[in-house]
């Protein structure tokens, strides 16, 4: 029986338990939200356009709330498969503390609030991009792609890649090539990041019937694809230097980080990570075989953070000095 065929009864059967306020915070996926806020704020600052600090703060808040709303809609729809995976089974909907309908209503309301407020603070283009991002994540990725194709996180990664474009649009009311370059970097970063993770928790995805790449095509094919994406990502990460978006600090992060990324991806490719069943208890918990996958997963977070932090420092300090 596939996960998609499972009835959504987990929440209904346990719905008598009262929801706490922090369950609603958990619906917003705060960890994902923090990365989205960071990249969105970088896009807003890198646009180098004068914007009221109050409007800038509200635009970033809208990106955060919009991302949280998409997370809540995702949890409302995915409660059946979340209940089957160790990483997600303690979420409030599969635990029955929040009913699926309530989570969907919460996500829908926050979507409306965030897009309306973005329209007022950041303009038409930023609001339209935010609405598209929420709809794409909740409607296209969650409802359709996630359960139907191993390319789910490749195509669905667009939703996670758009926040810097939204931030840029909120500040400049336009999205030039450099904004799309930031989007492209996150887009190409997403597959190696998620596939590295899914290599050592593939048992969870298998149990839930989610066709993640290691489950659908095998660990060897996934390791090769991670290497290919990494080989494209490293030079792509350096492109903002050539378009004068990134300065010396960014160039150093992109060159050093890109090289390290490829080395780790090569090590992963040469390893046996994902070949055998592994059921870690935490995101960074892995046995020896899965260690190269865990290392790339952890480093990928550091790499993206370093690139965007460099831009934030260069453009943020540039504006202050």
């Amino acid at each position: 029986m596939t996960a998609a065929a499972l009835p959504h009864t987990a929440s209904e059967t346990k719905a008598a338990q009262p929801a706490r306020w922090n369950d609603y915070i958990a619906l917003l996926k705060p960890r994902v939200m923090s990365l989205v806020v960071f990249t969105g704020a970088t896009g807003l600052v890198a646009a180098d356009r004068p914007i009221s600090p109050i409007l800038a703060a509200i635009a970033i808040l809208c990106i955060a709330v919009g991302a949280g709303a998409a997370g809540a809609l995702n949890m409302a729809f995915d409660s059946d498969i979340d209940a089957l995976m160790r990483r997600t089974k303690n979420r409030p909907v599969p635990q029955g503390r929040i009913a699926r309908g309530d989570a969907a209503f919460f996500g829908g309301t926050l979507s409306l609030f965030s897009v309306t407020l973005m329209w007022m603070a950041g303009g038409d283009l930023a609001a339209a991009l935010l609405a598209f991002t929420i709809a794409f994540y909740a409607g296209v990725y969650t409802v359709w792609l996630k359960r139907s194709t191993p390319q789910n996180i490749v195509i669905g990664g667009l939703a996670g890649a758009l926040p810097p474009v939204i931030g840029w649009a909120a500040a400049a009311h336009a999205v030039p090539l450099n904004a799309w370059l930031l989007c492209a970097i996150i887009f190409m970063w997403t597959p190696p990041h998620f596939w590295a993770l899914s290599l050592y928790i593939k048992g969870d995805y298998e149990a839930a019937g989610v066709p993640m790449m290691p489950v659908a095509k095998g660990a060897k094919s996934t390791r090769l694809q991670i290497l290919i994406y990494s080989l494209i990502l490293a030079p792509l990460g350096f492109l903002p230097v050539l378009t004068h978006l990134g300065g010396a600090l960014y160039a150093a992060c992109a060159a050093g980080g890109g090289a390290a990324f490829v080395i780790l991806a090569w090590r992963l490719y040469r390893s046996n990570a994902g070949d055998h069943e592994e059921r870690p208890t935490g995101l960074y918990d892995s046995k020896a075989e899965g260690r190269p996958a865990r290392d790339l997963f952890a480093f990928s977070l550091l790499y993206l953070t370093a690139l965007f932090a460099a831009l934030l420092i260069e453009h943020g300090l540039g504006a202050l000095l």
Binding site: P18, A19, R20, Y24, S52, I54, I58, L61, L117, M120
Partner: peptide, 27 residues
């Protein structure tokens, strides 16, 4: 728990109204 959720909802709505007011003032 329901009472706390209602208070949180009221605070959220009030926050939204205040933000709309602030954006209007700035614009």
């Amino acid at each position: 728990a329901r009472s706390r959720r209602n208070i949180a909802m009221a605070l959220g709505l009030a926050g939204f109204v205040i933000l709309i007011f602030v954006v209007t003032l700035v614009r």
